[in-house]
């Protein structure tokens, strides 16, 4: 659909300008503004090359870590991102933050959405637990990378397998897992192992 939006300054977010949607069209086409069959698609090309310049990445790094309690992996990854001066959005089991700012009174999937939809962030770290996925599902269908530090132990084994499958299916780039965890390794072996990257202390 095409959404017509009125604002007095398109460079600013709507919550600053107070802009409003005035019309929604079901068969939108910006080429209609200057119809020219020879240059069909020209305007779209301009829009897309502005939004996604060639060679730049079009998605921010988004990593999901499946781990209970305070996660050292979350902390380590946060350090890596921060060392690259990236603005990190984080949802952990204890806090939700954008950079150094804590978001209060937001939990669960709403917290994941608050992080992932925040236009300020350059990278996202989402911590999940098997229990929360079992209870509430996921707030997203795609992630870049899923990290599995250990096999979740506080759920019934069949449920854990379902949770692992659901979560790892979101990873478009990779699933990085601790191969020193025997149960986790066994689970990976029983799966399609493409895109799985083992990490071992030995």
């Amino acid at each position: 659909a095409g959404v017509d939006f009125l604002t007095n300054d398109i460079t600013k977010p709507y919550w600053e300008t107070g802009g409003k949607i005035c019309e929604v069209n079901i068969q939108a086409g910006i080429d209609g503004m200057s119809p020219d069959p020879e240059n069909s698609g020209f305007h779209f090309e301009q829009v897309f090359s502005l939004m996604f310049p060639e060679g730049t990445r079009t998605a921010i790094p988004m990593v999901v870590i499946l781990e209970d309690g305070p996660s050292k992996t979350v902390a380590a990854l946060n350090d890596v991102f921060k060392s690259q001066n990236l603005m990190v959005g984080r949802k952990t089991t204890t806090e939700v933050s954008i950079g150094n700012n804590l978001l209060v009174d937001v939990m669960g999937n709403a917290a994941s959405e608050a992080v992932l939809w925040n236009p300020m962030i350059d990278a996202a770290i989402i911590q999940e637990t098997a229990k929360s996925i079992e209870a509430y599902g996921l707030a997203y269908s795609v992630s870049e990378c899923v990290i599995l530090p250990r096999m979740p132990s506080n759920n019934d084994p069949e449920t854990v397998k379902k949770i692992l499958s659901t979560l790892t299916q979101t990873a478009v780039q990779a699933v990085v897992y601790n191969t020193d965890d025997k149960q986790l390794s066994d689970w990976v072996r029983s799966n399609d192992q493409e895109r799985y990257y083992p990490v071992s202390l030995t």
């Binding site: 050292k72 902390a75 380590a76 890596v80 990236l86 990278a123 990290i147 990085v176 990257y197």
Partner: peptide, 22 residues
């Protein structure tokens, strides 16, 4: 405890490497 920390760092670095983050 130290092993958990080492593993955490290795996992984070591997993920960053895959995502082309130096």
């Amino acid at each position: 405890k130290e092993k958990t920390e080492q593993m955490a760092i290795l996992l984070a670095l591997r993920a960053a490497e895959i995502m082309d983050i130096p």
